[in-house]
Write a protein that binds this DNA or RNA. Structure first.
Length: 653
RNA sequence: GCGCCCGUAGCUCAGCUGGAUAGAGCAACGGACUUCUAAUCCGUAGGUCGGAGGUUCGAAUCCUCCCGGGCGUGCCA
């Protein structure tokens, strides 16, 4: 049972004689802000005062008089201006705990079986190695899928892979010009990946050669402008200072770009072999694009290469997903929708939605300056077109009631236009949601990069996390009072779970809308709100069962509800009954940080319980059994909760 | 220029469909290992919620303006 829902339901009944629509007022029942006020509180008497023209406390008294809650609560108390405070009865909490003990779902209601949700997340480009930029979408999207599924929703997780874009042209070009046959024979994926990076680097090099003089010129004119403004503007004037500040920032930005451009040049020029390759083709970028265009036009050779390379590229991605324990129901990439795009644009034209503007096909949405561009001047389709085709497919074929896009917040305008276009196109019975998220920042508050300014590869990020947690595992296990407990293999497994769990948890614990600062120290810290802390609480419980040689299954069917003999037991049990609330809170607006917060609090309450309530050596057999039940329920809730976030739980650490 | 987002404790962040003295974690300080893992627990200290107005019985939360920062802005995805 979801206690919060139940209390709202009861409150709604009590409100029925007072107002026509009690729902919004019943929704004002919330978990108590402060334990001193009880467990839950109703805040609806105050806003009703104005509406009913009575004093809030009088209204509260009427509500309390109508309330039928004596089976679950102590008599509700009215406090302050008109708060109604609920304190759950100990024996009721205990009976709830007993019920949860035999509930596979741990109190989470299964209420959404008739609802189909498509979750679009991760969506990397094939052939490019995944990097930190993919982390949030991947981790967040996976957690959302798991949580929705656990709640009973029909979920289709879809990896909308970029498998039809310019990067394939680069690989094809690289294959035709720079292939190392023996390397290719030995490891196809590694060689393709090398070719991609090589062509990309050479393209960047030529772009840099071209850009440098322009940048230097730009810098000069910016500096001149700055000097001029400094001379003519009155620095005591705020507007003028601001203008100068902006110019200074622009100069700095240009200087940074020049520096990074120079380092790109140096990288190639300091390597004679690389320089020679660069000199072979001064227009490599254009030629690579040409390969892409040939592919799109159905060129036989390039199509064959695409067919040959794609499985290998996907395999490379799957390796990463396997390690992250992330799986998709489908991987319908851009290429899948390619044959439908002409028809999409025709359909939009027919309905009068799309019209020509500056040689491109555009959908203009009222209230938006920028058009939604579905076909470019050169006739090529855009990702807008693909996204529309995808929507049509998801609704017609997958019967989606709702589509979630777990994508960076910077694309919000695109989705605004996409959703509105889809609705006007006729797909207006489906809910669309851009589950947006902020940027991962480095300690310098700039987007997270390596020391040298490159994007951080996902693989190296994970390796680093696992290596660091391995050091901690070794250190702690070696210093255990009774000697080390873990063999090398176990240590490696624990390090993997702690390292990857740490990365995922650090991401999920933040409100998805916020940018957050990536910190190794905080992510893997032994203290604080981390995966490690939650995993440790779970491992301690497993230790109890191991040492006591406890049969957990028979524990669950043992007679008698848990006993509440100490405040720590009550607090722990109460939290355990609230797992369903936490899941609901996540689903409300797709915010997994609601679940991390719940799990952290649960771990915290357990740790207090652990310190204050001895379990195995408890002499009172009934109390010992009761506490073992709390341990079992806590362990299962922690394990299930972490699993819903995609995080594993070691039994020993 | 226009649009979107952000500004909460020394640091990292919750809280934001208005509700009681604004919460956590880290760092700081003080305690607790003959007891099931001290990767732990308990306690202390720390805030004019960027600023100013407004709406309200009540504002970190809603509205307006200002200051500071980020992002996006027709043919990359």
């Amino acid at each position: 049972m979801n206690v919060l829902k139940e209390l709202r339901h009861r409150t709604a009944k009590a409100l029925a004689p007072l107002v026509d629509d009690p729902q919004p007022f019943a929704a004002m029942v919330k978990p108590a802000q402060d334990a001193q006020f009880g467990d839950y509180q109703a805040n609806c008497a105050m806003p009703l005062a104005g509406k009913l023209k009575q004093k809030p406390r009088e209204i509260a008294e009427q509500i309390v008089a109508n309330l039928e809650v004596d089976d679950l609560c102590e008599p509700p108390e009215i406090a302050g201006p008109g708060f109604i405070n609920f304190k759950l009865k100990d024996d009721w909490i205990a009976s709830q705990g007993q019920a949860l003990l035999n509930d596979e779902r741990l109190g989470v209601e299964d209420s959404e079986a008739d609802r189909t949700v498509v979750v679009d997340f991760s969506s990397p480009n094939v052939a490019k190695p995944m990097h930190v930029g993919h982390l949030r979408s991947t981790v967040l999207g996976d957690a959302i899928c798991r949580i929705l599924r656990f709640r009973g929703t029909q979920v289709h997780s879809d990896n909308h892979i970029g498998d039809w874009g310019t990067q394939f042209g680069m690989i094809i070009y690289g294959y035709k010009h720079f292939l190392d046959q023996s390397a290719f024979a030995e490891n196809q994926v590694a060689e393709l990946s090398r070719l991609y990076r090589l062509v990309n680097q050479l393209s960047d090099y030529h772009a840099a050669v071209k850009a440098l003089p322009e940048l230097e010129e730009q810098l000069q004119s910016q500096q001149q402008l700055l000097e001029a403004k400094r001379g003519e503007l009155d620095t005591s004037d705020k507007k003028a200072r601001k203008e100068i500040g902006k110019l200074e920032a622009a100069v700095k930005a240009t200087q940074d770009r020049i520096e990074s451009t120079r380092s790109k040049l140096k990288e190639v020029e300091s390597d004679p072999a690389l320089k020679a390759l660069a000199d072979q083709d001064l227009e490599i970028a254009r030629h690579a694009r040409l390969e892409t265009a040939k592919l799109h036009q159905g060129d036989a050779e390039n199509t064959e290469l695409w067919n040959q390379f794609l499985p290998a590229c996907l395999a490379m991605l799957h390796q990463m997903y396997e390690r992250l324990d992330i799986h998709f129901d489908m991987e319908l990439g851009e290429s899948f929708y390619q044959p439908m795009l002409t028809d999409v644009v025709d359909s939009l034209k027919q309905q009068g939605l799309a019209s020509e503007s500056d040689g491109a096909m555009c959908v203009f949405i009222e209230g938006n300056d920028a058009p939604f561009l579905v076909q470019k001047q050169d006739g090529a389709f855009t990702y807008a077109t693909t996204d529309l085709a995808t929507i049509r497919y998801r609704i017609n074929e997958l019967k989606a009631d709702e589509i979630l896009y777990v994508v960076d917040a910077r694309q919000s305008e695109h989705f605004k236009l996409l959703f509105e276009t889809a609705r006007q196109w006729g797909f207006d019975q489906t809910e669309y949601q851009h589950v947006s998220f902020g940027t991962i920042l480095g300690e310098d508050k700039r987007p997270f990069k390596t020391r040298s300014g490159d994007t951080v590869g996902l693989e190296s990020l994970i390796d680093e996390a696992v290596a660091q947690s391995r050091k901690i595992v070794d250190e702690i296990d070696d210093s255990k009072p009774d000697g080390p407990e873990l063999d090398a293999e176990t240590r490696a497994n624990v390090a993997e779970m702690v390292g990857i769990g740490g990365i995922k948890y650090a991401d999920l614990r933040h409100n998805r809308d916020s940018d957050y600062v990536f910190s190794w120290d905080k992510m893997l810290a032994k203290d604080g709100d981390t995966a490690t802390y939650v995993q440790y609480a779970h491992a301690r419980i497993c230790g109890i069962f191991r040492k006591g040689d406890i049969d957990r299954a028979s524990l669950r069917t043992a007679s008698g509800s848990p006993l509440i003999s100490a405040p720590e037991e009550r607090a722990l049990l109460l939290q355990l009954t609230r797992f369903g609330e936490a899941i609901e809170a996540v689903c409300e607006d797709y915010r997994p940080n609601q679940l991390t917060q719940y799990l952290f609090e649960l771990s915290n309450l357990f740790s207090s319980f652990y310190v204050n309530c001895i379990v195995l050596k408890e002499e009172n057999a009934e109390l010992r059994t009761s506490r073992l039940k709390l341990c079992d329920l806590t362990a299962r809730t922690l394990q299930t909760g972490l699993k819903l976030l995609g995080i594993e739980t070691p039994e020993q650490m």
